[in-house]
Simulated scan of single mutants.
Amino acid sequence: MTEQPLIPETPALPSTPAEAATRLDQLKADPKWASSFVSGSPSHLQEFRDLHEIVAKGDHVDMAMSGLMPEMPSSSHREMAGTASMLRELGIDDRIIKETLTGHMVTKPEYEATERWKKDAMSNPDFVKRYIGGDNEARRKMTLANIILTGGIQDPT
């Protein structure tokens, strides 16, 4: 009996428009997948269509997060798409990106803890050097702190 080579399974389709947009970005960045897609691979074409269908079911924020542009995109749509792309490049989760784009608030203790963290981080010469030097992890942490601090504090009632 000869062994058959394993054919990699296509991952399950994402369940949300944001996840589908992330998957589309990953596929577009994969040269092997892109080459097969451009060559007309039926499975790649179907996956592309399926992912776009999921993205299309989302709201305007999901659409911006996907990077898809309507025929006449507004400046706010372009700004949201650019922000989502920048945050994704820093490794920030889509759930947090969506909260950032739709408005978010935190509790007063969360806000105060983040303020303390940022003050401590900016007082640490090693962190500042890494942050200013473009260290991705330092940039991601500072960006997350700034997202929290710009969102506002929830009303405690």
Rank of each mutant, 00 (worst) to 15 (best):
S76F: 12
H77S: 04
R78D: 08
E79D: 07
M80K: 11
G82P: 08
M86L: 08
M86C: 03
L87F: 04
R88T: 13
R88G: 12
E89H: 14
E89L: 14
I92K: 05
I92V: 05
D93M: 05
D93N: 12
R95I: 00
R95M: 13
K98S: 11
E99T: 10
E99V: 08
T100C: 12
T100M: 06
T100N: 11
T100E: 04
T100G: 01
L101D: 03
T102Y: 00
T102K: 10
H104L: 14
H104D: 00
M105Y: 00
T107K: 14
K108Q: 11
K108N: 04
K108M: 13
Y111D: 01
A113C: 05
T114Y: 07
E115G: 02
R116H: 06
R116I: 06
W117T: 05
K118D: 08
K118E: 09
K118S: 06
M122A: 05
S123P: 12
S123N: 13
N124L: 13
N124Q: 12
N124V: 14
D126N: 10
D126G: 07
D126P: 02
K129T: 12
K129R: 15
Y131K: 02
Y131N: 05
I132K: 14
G134E: 13
G134H: 11
N136F: 00
N136S: 00
N136P: 00
